[in-house]
Design a protein around this nucleic acid. Structure first.
Lengths: 115, 115
DNA sequence: CTATTATATTCCCATATCGGAATATAAATC
DNA sequence: GATTTATATTCCGATATGGGAATATAATAG
């Protein structure tokens, strides 16, 4: 099996730096492909391709305004990432919750064991 | 330029489903490669490779216990993802904060413009 | 030293990428 | 309709993947 397509889910879509950058830019305002290309210092086709990926996973939407196509962010599509990462939040903040036990065990084990 | 290596950053490392799964499993307790292979229904070498990636981006740590190597989660390495995703949080929750203005502009524009 | 067990590495292949160049399509303007 | 402007698509190449099979390495037990 090969690497999962970038369009397979939001995690894959967002793995690419430029695409994350695009989302950040779109958080400020809706922009056209050329707007984005200029700010990212990429050629227009490259940006079009990134936008295609982002659109397929519903991270962006387009609306046509005359000759232009204005892309805007659909931040809600990022929720799965936030949700997933939040799952682990207690593990790096002070609150250890259910992990407390596990960590306690580990350090106890380490002391009891050899080293 | 080709796709970024999975080891280039946490976002790329976490793009792969099996690797996310591994992190989830390790959140429960430290596990050996074979433990993981069994639960993921993957062959041991496949899991070893995933762990290598996760280790390179510091998402996991190993400690040798005799013949075994026990992998554990380093949740702190996920913080960048959480931080990044959180940036957009206001856009999908009720609180619009600084984006309020932007959205207001947009809808105003849409009404004022043609459609 | 020779199993045996646990893990890592190498080799392979099908697949997909990202970007640039060139080209096609779309929409507005003359 | 021809031209200009904005965008999308196609073709290409270098690169990397993820998994299996086979093999190498590590560590413990006999």
């Amino acid at each position: 099996m090969a690497r999962s397509p970038t369009t397979s889910d939001v995690f894959n879509a967002v793995a690419e730096v430029q695409r994350r950058q695009i989302l950040t830019l779109l958080a400020g305002s809706e922009l056209s492909v050329n707007d984005l290309a200029e700010r990212l210092e990429l050629r227009q086709p490259a940006v079009s391709k990134h936008l295609r990926v982002l659109k397929e996973v519903e991270l962006v939407q387009v609306r046509g305004v005359g000759q232009q196509r204005l892309y805007s962010l659909n931040a809600a599509a990022l929720k799965p990432i936030n949700d997933w990462a939040s799952t682990f939040q207690s593990l790096w903040t002070g609150r250890l919750d259910r992990l407390e036990a596990h960590l306690a065990e580990m350090s106890a084990q380490q002391q009891g064991e050899d080293l």
